Amino acid sequence: MTQPLRVVAVSGGLQSPSKSAALTEHILGLIADEISSEQHMVELGQLAPLLAGAIWRSQLPEVVERKLTVVEQADILVVATPVYRGSYTGLFKHFFDFIHQDALIDKPVLLAATGGSERHALVIEHQLRPLFSFFQARTLPLGIYATDKDFVDYRLQDPALIERTRLALQRAMPLLELTRKARHPLVEQLAVA
């Protein structure tokens, strides 16, 4: 029996509802269709008041510590942030400042962002990818960038973007399968025997 992968999504959206959260939920749904997974969503907008003023991880309340631990123990991360002044939100960076620097080594990370227009699409390459390279994570090849026009009532509607999201996941599947096999080598050996 194959154990599900722990897939954790982090949405940097500050409002509720949030387009970043809607995008991560869409991606989580596609992952659930392809691979057995236990999914968790971390919405930073809900944690904002609890993160304010904390400089050290030891200063954080238990609820934030639990969210950090969930991220650190993930097998796969999906991260999405709204673009704010050409980058991820300060809250998004503040949250990841508390993640242990070795906790994400070799973890697959699917990068996503939302913005008001296409002019911010390179935030994935110029901001998110370097952040997760610091953590030595394995950022997946295709990032997903959505604009306001891609949503209707906080649901992804643009056919081209929906197809790009499917393609990003399709290209990620070999790495996700390797991650699953690496996590459960004994289970894989018993299945072959």
Score class of each variant (00 low, 15 high):
V109K: 13
V79G: 09
L161Q: 08
A146K: 06
G90E: 07
F95T: 02
E43Q: 13
G29F: 07
F95M: 07
M1S: 15
E177L: 13
T69L: 13
V7L: 13
R57Y: 00
Q3T: 10
P108L: 10
G115C: 06
V70L: 14
Q15I: 04
S37Q: 02
G115T: 04
L128W: 08
Q3R: 12
S18P: 03
L131D: 14
A172W: 13
V109Q: 08
A182W: 01
T114W: 01
L47C: 04
R166D: 08
S36I: 07
F95R: 09
V8M: 06
I124H: 00
F96G: 11
R6M: 05
Q73S: 13
P185G: 06
R66E: 14
R138P: 00
V64T: 03
Q59V: 01
H26T: 03
P108N: 11
F96D: 11
V123L: 06
P108Q: 09
I162Q: 11
V123W: 05
L30T: 02
I31N: 02
Q73L: 10
T179M: 04
Y154T: 03
P108S: 10
Q73R: 15
G116C: 07
F132Q: 07
R171I: 14
D75R: 03
A121S: 15
G13H: 05
A146I: 04
L186V: 03
M41W: 04
T179Q: 08
L30D: 01
G90Y: 09
F98Y: 12
P185H: 03
E65R: 05
M173F: 07
L140I: 05
F132I: 07
S117F: 03
Q39D: 13
V152K: 12
A168T: 05
T89L: 07
T147H: 05
K93Q: 08
E188T: 09
R6K: 15
P174C: 15
R171Q: 15
I35A: 03
D97T: 02
E188M: 12
S11T: 05
S18W: 03
G12R: 09
K149I: 02
D148N: 08
E125Q: 15
